[in-house]
Simulated assay, not measured.
Amino acid sequence: MESLLGLLRVRIIRGVNLAVRDTTGSDPYVVLRMGRQKLKTSVKKNNVNPEWNEDLTLSVSKHLQPIKLEVYDKDTFSRDDKMGDAEFEVTSFIEAVKMSSTDFPNGTTITTVKPCRQNCLAGESPILWRDGKIVQEIVLRLRNVEAGEIELELTWIDIPGAPGF
């Protein structure tokens, strides 16, 4: 197994203005993938502005891969409908984690990731030092769909005994 550097907690906060896929609305859930890891949130019934506030935890190794996020509409009798996808790199976040051996004042912005063609950011995404942890606030604009954004927050979790950086 590849050497584990630590854990990335991805808090799926909410969906905003998600696409309507059924006559009554949508029953959205989020799937996160990184390499062979695949995690998903619960389904929010009949809601295009769902609040999840759910933590999904990915293990991070030396071979950093982008995180893929997909939103689906849960259907009972047919295949779940896709409601868009997004992808984001965690390279800047990991760089900030590497720098964070020093204690910053609470609320310090370490760096900011700007939206570009290579990411799905809806706006600038600050990487902060908050309560002794590195945190990144992200709003992703969903692709391949008419509307929708997903708000999430990344937090780094050190594993005792892991080689780290």
Rank of each mutant, 00 (worst) to 15 (best):
E51I: 14
P105M: 04
P126L: 06
V16I: 14
K45R: 15
D85Q: 13
N17V: 02
K44V: 15
D22I: 04
L18H: 10
V90I: 15
Q37N: 05
T23P: 01
G84E: 10
R33L: 00
K133F: 00
M83D: 06
L5Q: 05
C120K: 00
N49G: 05
D85Y: 11
L18W: 08
L69M: 15
R79E: 15
T112N: 07
P66D: 09
R117T: 09
L128W: 00
V60W: 02
E51V: 14
R11A: 04
N47V: 07
S78F: 14
P50G: 12
L128F: 00
Y29I: 04
D22N: 15
L8E: 03
R36H: 07
I67C: 08
E95N: 06
K133H: 09
R117I: 06
L58F: 12
G6V: 07
T76V: 14
A122R: 01
L69D: 08
A86E: 08
T102H: 11
D75V: 08
K98N: 13
G123Y: 01
Q37W: 06
V90K: 01
M83T: 02
I12N: 08
T111P: 01
L18P: 08
S61Y: 02
F77M: 13
D22E: 15
L5G: 02
R36T: 11
T57P: 01
D85A: 09
D85S: 15
I127G: 03
L32Y: 00
T24V: 07
W52R: 09
P126K: 06
V48Q: 14
K44E: 10
L32G: 00
P50L: 11
A96R: 08
K74W: 14
E89A: 06
R79P: 09
K74T: 03
K98S: 14
C116M: 02
G107H: 03
D27Y: 04
V48F: 12
K74D: 14
L56D: 11
F77A: 12
S92V: 01
G25Y: 08
T112Y: 06
S92L: 11
D81L: 11
D27H: 12
E124L: 02
L18V: 04
D55S: 14
K98D: 12
T76N: 13
V71P: 04
N49F: 12
Y72P: 07
D27L: 03
T112I: 15
T112V: 15
P28N: 04
G6Q: 07
D55C: 07
L39V: 02
G84R: 11
T102K: 14
P28A: 03
S101W: 13
D75G: 12
K40R: 15
L69S: 05
G123S: 07
P105S: 11
N49T: 13
V71H: 08
N49I: 04
K38Q: 14
L18Q: 09
L8I: 03
R9I: 05
M99L: 15
P50C: 13
R14G: 01
F88Q: 02
